[in-house]
Design a protein around this nucleic acid. Structure first.
Lengths: 256, 256
DNA sequence: TTATGGTATGACGTAACGTTAGAGTCAAAC
DNA sequence: GTTTGACTCTAACGTTACGTCATACCATAA
């Protein structure tokens, strides 16, 4: 007759040795025999029983109930499955409700942190802001403005601040090499860094294509809105144009 | 300033005193002050914090994470909600799979226990069985036979046995009063017992109307199949007819 | 014979409390 | 002033299904 040691059975069934010790202790799965040295040896019946145990365990039955099921008759099995299934359905309902609550809460929080129109042109006077917008429309059309503002409004306050601040560093590097061609490898490498850096604000929504379009749009925004491309506090219009070109080129080469 | 003792806070927030002790111990909710006698006293801030805690607890956040959330900034909150939501979605998926497995298993089990055609007329020879079926058709039509057999085939073996055996008792009582009118109150009372007794084999499927039709059909079956209405081993055709009448009357009076 | 690796038992740790148990505290009733 | 009853405190075990040591024993090959 086939006999398995703890480790053998553990390998066959994919459970830990400790689990077998435990099942033995609680009387769920006793070894067929014990050697004089107290070693546990299991036979085929035990292997089968273990597989039954694992089946119910996968269904999230507590071990005590598994013990009952495996010792009682078949009729109880159906009943057990039925009532356990009902419990699971209830769990699902509860989780659904939790998910709804979570989504609502997130909406609430995001709403609070959404940028208001005022904050969008914060630091500019109303007139300046409007002048700013008119300029964009003249140069790039109303659609470009719309896209840019829609993009910014989707950000939270923190993200907006991060957008302004966190990129100073990388912009400095880019500024240093802004005498190079926007399509050059050196520039494109830095741009890819910038892209990765900015991507984390976009979350997971939107197709990859639309992400490239967004990125191009962001480049246009840099030209239009001088807040982003200030270097050491000074406005750099040429740099913004350089940036936009490099970004557009990057986006186009990535779009297969 | 308002101060609450453990029990007061426990009543307000709907948690146990032990829970407050525990939250204190793990540093999740410390009382505002401790009296010289070591009594815990909570203020309004603590009440508010407790409510926050309970909010996240309802969402199944572990207390450790709640501790982090309540001490860290708001940005982490959204992240926490998002990842926790993803966990919950995974849980839901796993439960869905479990439910599918359970349903499959139950189908398998029931199939095994379904009555086979042979077992349906078990104890009768083939000829007898066919004679039996012909008789039913002659007296009640083919539809009645079909319905009866369909009804029986839906039962599991155990249920079939139960149907035959478990009702001996109640049939004896009914047999005693079978000299009464089937429509009489005494009889109808017993019939209602019989109805309740038999109902548990039907499960939850089928409209209530169809259940009454089933019940009437079962009465016809009793007439046709003498196995069910044997009293002390003797066939009682008159009793079967009496039963069927009483059952039909019962079903009709219940159908509003 | 010893090195190596498998095995056994026992005990602590995990999460979030429930549940005694023993001892001290408070306010009111006597 | 004291007793009573309600309240509070800390400490400790129980719960689930093991993981993770620690320590000691066992088996087999070199």
């Amino acid at each position: 007759m086939q006999k398995y040691t703890v480790q053998e059975l553990s390998n066959i069934a994919g459970v830990s040795v400790r689990t077998l010790h435990y099942y033995d202790k609680i009387g769920l799965l006793k070894p067929a025999v014990r050697t004089e040295a107290k070693y546990r040896l299991y036979g085929k019946n035990e292997l089968l029983r273990l597989q039954q145990i694992l089946f119910f365990k996968e269904l999230d039955f507590p071990l005590k109930e598994i013990l009952n099921i495996l010792s009682d008759s078949e009729f109880d099995l159906i009943e057990a499955l039925e009532s356990h299934g009902q419990e699971l359905v209830l769990k699902q309902k509860r989780i659904s409700e939790m998910l709804i609550t979570i989504e609502k809460t997130m909406l609430d929080l995001k709403e609070k942190k959404m940028i208001t129109d005022n904050e969008l042109y914060d630091g500019f006077s109303k007139e300046e802001a409007n002048k700013n917008r008119k300029e964009i429309i003249e140069k790039y059309g109303a659609k470009a403005l719309e896209k840019s503002e829609a993009y910014l409004k989707k950000l939270t306050k923190e993200q907006f601040e991060a957008l302004k601040n966190e990129q100073r560093e990388i912009f400095k590097v880019l500024f240093e090499i802004s005498n190079q061609e926007p399509e050059s490898k050196v520039v494109q490498l830095e741009i890819s860094r910038h892209y990765k850096n900015i991507r984390k604000f976009w979350g997971t929504d939107g197709s990859s294509n639309s992400q490239w379009r967004n990125y191009t749009g962001l480049g246009e925004l840099y030209i239009a809105d001088e807040r982003f491309t200030k270097i050491d506090g000074k406005v750099q219009p040429d740099f913004a144009i350089f940036l936009s070109k490099a970004m557009t080129y990057f986006a186009n080469t990535q779009l297969k």
